[in-house]
Amino acid sequence: MNSFFKYFTDIYSGVKSLLTGMSVTGKYFFSPGQIVTEQYPENRKKLLMQERFKGEVIMPHDQNNQHRCTGCGICETNCPNGSIEVISNRIDSGDGKKVRIIDKHIYHLSMCTFCGLCIKTCPSDALAWGQQFEHAVFDRAKLTKTLNKPGSSILKGIE
C-alpha cells in the first residue's frame, strides 16, 4: 500500500518540479525587458569602456608631441614574452655628455599577454593602457607597432 501511494506522490512531486522549472523560463519569455544581449557593432558609439581596460599598451603623447619615455629598457627586461623592443640612440646633449634618447619603442601586440608588468615597472610612467580593443587585421605585420610617434621628443624634466 505504501508503494502504491509513493507512485502517486512521485508523479505529483515530479510534475510540480517540472512546472516550477517551466515557470522560470516562462517568466523570462514574457519579460523581454530583461534581455542582456549586447548588440555589438551597433552599440559601438555608446559602448561603456572602463578606464582601466587593458586593450593595448600605448605611449601617451601631449599636444606638443612629447612623451615621457627615456629609453631605459626596464619595460623590455620586465616583459615575460619579449614583446617590447627598445631601440635607443646616444646623442650629444650639448655640454659634451652623451645622452640616451629613444629611437623606436617597438611593441609586438601579437606576443603581448597583457600582464601589465611594463606599465607597473616603468619609472617615468611613460606607458599606459589604451582602450582600443578591435585588433583584428589582415596582415600580421600590422600588429607590430612603434609606440613613439614620428618626430616626438622627450618631455623636459624627465630623466
Binding site: 542582456v36 572602463q50 582601466r52 581596460f53 587593458k54 599577454t113 597583457f114 600582464c115 601589465g116 607597473k120
Partner: peptide
C-alpha cells in the same frame, strides 16, 4: 557577466587578470 564587469572595472580584463603581485596588488 556581472562579476566579470566588476573585474573589468577594477583590473581591466575579464578572464586573465594578473592582478596580484608579490607583496600586494598591481593597483
Amino acid at each position: 557577466e556581472k562579476i566579470l564587469d566588476i573585474f573589468e572595472q577594477s583590473f581591466g580584463s575579464r578572464l586573465l587578470h594578473s592582478y596580484y603581485a608579490p607583496g600586494g596588488l598591481m593597483m
